[in-house]
């Protein structure tokens, strides 16, 4: 397995003055791969990703991206360090057009508009649905189209690691397949991917690694095929199965 692009160690995070939601999570994401976080609702998957992208400041632990310690960086700095992020909800600016959303996704991270056109073309190649619709308001898009736009925006500045929070949630079957196809082709273009998914079977088909998060802790990290063939996924979720410890992966 190749070197990790992201390493998370003993991470603790939570909201406001509340208790820890992420309770000492540790795992790594290998460069060039698709890794998928699975786990029950409320396990803290979204919270984990929010603390990775700097929307929540970790209370302790470390986050290493491309061999640099980025634990304490805020969201804009993390974005500039090469982290892309597609939130689970509220992931486009509804009162802006598609074109403005795309420009905005580029100009502050790339610090200018040089290369904006090329970035736009790359995104249009992956999401042809967006072509010729630049003047449409993002708020008027269907759920699937909005998800495509959000994904496209995250790609605009050319991140080295892309974090996707349930990219296929709420999509019709046609869009689900299209979305996973898009994830695959972005990855083929060299972008490492860490995503959260509830459509576990479809996700594992394109993934290299499965990370199981339960109650704010990583229960297991294993190759995706092994996860799919695991005799008792339910037990994995419940944390009762005898699984490989993360360190030995």
């Amino acid at each position: 397995m190749s070197d990790p692009i992201l390493t998370v160690d003993a991470l603790r995070a939570g909201y406001g003055s509340g208790g820890d939601i992420i309770k000492g999570a540790g795992f790594s994401v290998s460069e060039g791969a698709i890794s998928t976080i699975v786990g029950p609702n409320g396990a803290g998957k979204s919270t984990l990703i929010k603390s990775l992208v700097g929307l929540l400041t970790p209370r302790s632990g470390t986050i290493t991206l491309n061999e640099a310690d980025v634990t304490r960086l805020n969201a804009p700095a993390k974005a500039r360090a090469g982290l892309g992020y597609v939130p689970q909800e509220h992931n486009v600016f509804r009162n802006m057009s598609i074109g403005e959303n795309m420009t905005l996704a580029y100009e502050f991270i790339a610090k200018g508009t040089k290369g904006l056109k090329a970035a736009r073309e790359r995104v249009f190649d992956i999401f042809p649905d967006l072509v010729h619709r630049e003047a449409d308001m993002a708020g008027n898009l269907s759920g699937g189209q909005r998800q495509m736009l959000a994904f496209g925006c995250a790609l605009m500045p050319g991140p080295s690691l892309l974090l996707l929070d349930e990219p296929s949630a709420g999509l019709s079957p046609k869009y689900v397949a299209e979305m996973f196809q898009a994830v695959k082709s972005v990855n083929d273009a060299g972008v490492s991917i860490l995503m959260i998914e509830q459509n576990v079977k479809e996700a594992m088909v394109i993934s290299e690694t499965a990370i199981v998060l339960v109650s704010g802790q990583v229960r297991a990290q294993m190759p995706a095929p092994e996860f799919l063939n695991h005799p008792d996924i339910h037990a994995l979720y419940m944390g009762t199965a005898d699984v490989t410890a993360p360190e030995t992966v």
Binding site: L55, A75, P76, A79, H90, F93, N95, L104, I109, P157
Partner: peptide, 19 residues
């Protein structure tokens, strides 16, 4: 654009590199 972005969705604006 940054002003409109922050007023619509501050978290997403942060993720977009807006300080």
């Amino acid at each position: 654009r940054a002003m409109r972005a922050v007023s619509d969705n501050p978290d997403l604006a942060g993720v977009r590199g807006i300080n």
